[in-house]
Amino acid sequence: MSTETAIRVGTDVVAVHQVAESVERFGPRYLQRVYTEHEVMSCRGTPAVKAASLAARFAAKEATIKVLRPAGHQPDWRSVEVRRHSEGWCTMALSGHAAALADQAGIADLAVSLTHDGDMAAAVVVALCRSETGPHEGGEDA
């Protein structure tokens, strides 16, 4: 029995002003359908700063979905969460359908990096996938 590893990478960019428009147009309903309570609480500051932080998180969600490669329906946006730690760095936390897709893909770890500058926010997500293979793959153990 051996373990094979593979790496998947996802990336996405989001226009900050479009997120600001969504917050203004749809208000709490936009926030509640897309972001977790933790994510909304993590995005503080002026409306412009908050929009940039939300945009980076949306980019991270989309980058993660690219890594998960869903064949059917996409995971709920809220099931792909950016967790901000007290020191400032972030990790991804999956639940529900997103977590199931990660399990199916053998994703053992996810790393994320967020950034924003001016009107653009971006995220890169890297996944480490592990799958066990053996000499009797598909058959019974001796």
Binding site: V14, A15, S22, R25, F26, R33, D76
Partner: peptide, 25 residues
């Protein structure tokens, strides 16, 4: 993808419906 979220929310407002998770593809 982000624009499609706005389209979805606007459709919900206009047609008084809510897209369930299973339709979020």
């Amino acid at each position: 993808s982000h624009a499609s979220v706005n389209v979805m929310l606007a459709l919900e407002d206009e047609f008084d419906v809510e897209f369930p998770e299973v339709m979020l593809r």
